[in-house]
């Protein structure tokens, strides 16, 4: 399958928007680049202010201890955490998720004996749990996680398939690979193979097809400004275009490895439509009728945005999922489920 990747100039033309005076004023007040505010206003209208205020508040992110149900019962883990002084709450839609709503001075939730024993994985909030749950996983499947480190989603996938099957967990950064492997070893999974391949060319290096693929693309992290405030001014539109091009390359490369009938989840921890709806639309346009977006079947989060006035956005992106910090009390994220016909 021939793949022509979009040129940087074309992407930049597609995503460039002209901020209104209102956007410029808000950008000054909150310390953002004006183009970012302009699209918040286009997507959210008056709610944009709520989003900006939520991004000023790191405490909206509540850590989630994802219980390793292959090693310990989740009720028992919750009991142990409570004995250590943590106040917890279970998430209805993710049976393994224990949200930490208050914590003692010591120990830190990332350094309890239960953590060291591999009884749970620590997520900074619940958003990362959504993609694996949306992938319709089953025991014995062959699964690729194209950008897997530090391993939260890969280990969740291993858990959801009962550690029976084959997961290829790939990444390129050696530091992040160390974290990935240490999490796999700590949690004791046996079905994961870790590879070091540039995800932009993964279809050239892996001679395998997969029933399920996760592309959790390295992104600008615009959904987590509350813990990374530099993002307000760090990524101008040219830098964003570079990220978008890489995201398109990774998605196209991974789509080539998807079996007919197979499902790929594309996710980011960004609320930038350029990195989400635009990337997915470009991929769908590239492959024509071969791929479709399917509804993941969750109703508690927002939908993808079709009317963005940037590039050509495929209307099917309205089947994708968005979490918004001000609406959902979590980091901003995006998940889209793509099926090969």
């Amino acid at each position: 399958m021939a793949r022509e990747i979009a040129g940087l100039g074309e992407i930049l033309r597609d995503i460039t928007i002209d901020p209104s005076p209102v956007a410029r004023d808000l950008a000054r007040r909150y310390g953002y680049l004006p183009y970012m505010i302009e699209r918040y206003i286009r997507i959210l209208g008056d709610e944009a202010i709520d989003l900006l205020n939520a991004m000023e508040n790191p405490s909206i992110l509540r850590p989630v201890a994802r219980c390793n149900s292959l090693r310990i019962g989740c009720i028992e883990l919750e009991r142990r955490l409570s004995r250590l002084g943590f106040k917890t709450r279970r998430l209805e839609w993710a049976p393994e998720a224990i949200e930490i709503i208050d914590h003692p001075e010591s120990p830190s939730i990332g350094a309890t004996h239960e953590y060291l024993k591999g009884f749970y994985y620590l997520h900074r909030d619940y958003s990362p749990l959504i993609p694996p749950l949306a992938m319709r996983l089953g025991r014995g499947q062959r699964i690729l996680d194209s950008c897997a480190a530090p391993g939260g989603k890969a280990t969740y996938i291993a858990q959801l398939i009962g550690d029976e099957g084959l997961i290829i967990a790939n990444d390129i950064s050696i530091n992040r690979l160390r974290s990935l492997v240490s999490n796999i070893v700590r949690m004791g999974f046996g079905s994961i193979m870790v590879t070091r391949i540039d995800a932009r060319r993964i279809h050239k290096d892996l001679r395998l097809t997969f029933e399920r693929i996760l592309v959790d693309a390295p992104c600008s992290a615009e959904g987590y400004i509350m813990i990374d405030p530099d993002r307000k001014w760090r990524t101008d539109q040219r830098d964003l275009a570079l990220l978008v091009r890489r995201e398109i390359e990774i998605l196209l490369s991974s789509l080539e490895l998807l079996e007919p009938g197979g499902i790929l989840a594309y996710s980011t921890c960004s609320i930038a439509p350029e990195e989400n709806e635009y990337v997915v639309s470009r991929a769908l346009r590239h492959y024509g009728e071969e791929f479709d977006i399917v509804d993941p079947g969750f109703s508690m989060w927002s939908r993808g945005v079709e009317d963005l006035l940037i590039g050509d956005i495929d209307p099917r992106v309205s089947r994708c999922i968005r979490t918004w910090p001000h609406k959902h009390g979590a980091g901003g994220s995006f998940v889209c489920i793509i099926r090969r016909r």
Binding site: I168, F189, M193, T195, I197
Partner: peptide
């Protein structure tokens, strides 16, 4: 992969995937 230690792993049910042994960093338990 890690400073100062090597890991001994059991491949278990994971079979070698053709053509990527050079790129495999870890597998099994």
């Amino acid at each position: 992969l890690f400073p100062d230690i090597c890991l001994i792993v059991s491949r278990g049910d994971i079979h070698e995937v053709r053509g990527i042994s050079r790129r495999t960093v870890y597998m099994g338990r």
